[in-house]
C-alpha cells in the first residue's frame, strides 16, 4: 500500500506502523513531531499506530524562523 510522507508517495508493507515508516526514512527520535491525518501522534504512540493505504503523514522539525 502507499502512504504520503511529507508529500512523497511511499510504498509500505501491509500492517506497517508509523514507527516502521519513520525508521525507514531515517527520522530521528528527538526534535521532531508527527501528524497523521492532521492529528499529532505522540512519540509513545508511533509503534502502536498502524497506517492505512492513503494515510497522510507529516513530519516536522524546528528550523530557522521568526
Amino acid at each position: 500500500m502507499n502512504v504520503l510522507v511529507n508529500g512523497d508517495v511511499t510504498e509500505v508493507g501491509p500492517g506497517a506502523t508509523l514507527a516502521d515508516v519513520l525508521a525507514a526514512r531515517g527520522v530521528p527520535e528527538r526534535g521532531v513531531a508527527v501528524a497523521v491525518a492532521g492529528e499529532v501522534v505522540p512519540r509513545a504512540a508511533w509503534r502502536s499506530t498502524t497506517l492505512r493505504d492513503g494515510s497522510v503523514v507529516e513530519v516536522l522539525t524546528a528550523v530557522q524562523g521568526g
Binding site: 511529507n6 513531531a33 513530519v59 524546528a62 528550523v63 524562523g65
Partner: peptide, 8 residues
C-alpha cells in the same frame, strides 16, 4: 524563536 517546517 524557531519555525516548524517539514523535516526534509
Amino acid at each position: 524563536t524557531v519555525a516548524m517546517r517539514r523535516l526534509d
